[in-house]
């Protein structure tokens, strides 16, 4: 039995009066590729944002790679984490956003090299060499000098993936990374991610509405509704043979809406 790399223990999160997560627990094994699916507002994106420390939890605990994310051990007890602790923990995690969030004033290669140079003190030459390898991997080496505004949505998202990978995180979070793309550009981003999933032992969490993509990408699929895991299992089981009534009706609706499964 391998120790989980992510261990979420009874976390709670509310936005105002709306309880998004209420006592959610789950575990992720190292190198696992996880797809989180479910209707809007079911809490799946919130989980990713909490793991990236973009939202704070109201209760519960999260363990990343054997260490508390939001707490520090002090005098035998747990106290809330300070900024320094969070900074150290964030090194283990990277995230790709729905709207890419590239830095518009920096060229493609500068987008990729900025964080390694600033946070790890990587010399420019080394950071650029690594950036070119990553850009080559996502098929955009020839765009290194371009500005983000000159790229298509699919290209921007591939740069964003390279940028997150440049910090070599142990865990990668993908938040609806194809939702903002024109249909004909979805494919190129998916292909990069599928290859990435197959080639690396990074742990990956994917939130998506593309069921076909979730099917191919993931080792395990979690179906969320109302902040809870309604059903989980291997992609084949969830998509071909869902047991829960809510999972069935969600998948039916998604297919009716024209999404591929």
């Amino acid at each position: 039995m391998v120790a989980p790399i992510i261990k979420i223990d009874a976390i709670a999160k509310s936005f105002g009066n709306f309880k998004v997560l209420d006592g959610l627990s789950m575990e992720v094994k190292p190198a696992e590729k996880l797809a989180l699916i479910g209707p809007s507002g079911s809490g799946k994106t919130t989980i990713l944002r909490i793991l990236m420390t973009l939202e704070r939890i109201d209760g519960g605990h999260i363990e990343i790679d054997g260490e508390q994310l939001y707490h520090m051990e002090k005098n035998g007890g747990l106290v809330p984490a300070d900024e320094r602790h969070l900074t150290r923990m964030r090194q283990k995690i990277g995230m790709v956003f729905q709207l890419f969030n590239l830095f518009p004033h920096k060229s493609v290669i500068d987008n990729v090299t900025l964080a390694p140079m600033l946070t790890k003190g990587t010399p420019r030459a080394e950071a650029e060499k690594r950036a070119m390898e990553l850009l080559d991997m996502v098929g955009l080496a020839e765009k290194a000098k371009a500005m983000p505004a000159q790229l298509s949505g699919g290209q921007k998202q591939r740069v964003a993936i390279a940028r997150a990978l440049a910090l070599s995180p142990k865990i990668m979070l993908f938040d609806e990374v194809t939702s903002a793309l024109d249909p004909e550009l979805v494919e190129e981003v998916m292909n990069v991610m599928k290859r990435l999933a197959a080639e690396t032992d990074m742990t990956m969490l994917l939130v998506t509405h593309e069921m076909g993509f979730a099917h191919e990408f993931a080792d395990r699929v979690l179906f969320f509704d109302g902040g809870k895991i309604v059903e989980e299992g291997k992609p084949d089981d969830i998509f071909s043979n869902p047991k829960q009534e809510r999972t069935q009706s969600f998948l039916k609706k998604i297919i009716a809406a024209g999404h591929r499964v």
């Binding site: 973009l54 964030r90 910090l167």
Partner: peptide, 8 residues
């Protein structure tokens, strides 16, 4: 948020 995700 991109800055946080890149740990700046």
């Amino acid at each position: 948020e991109a800055c946080v995700a890149l740990n700046l």
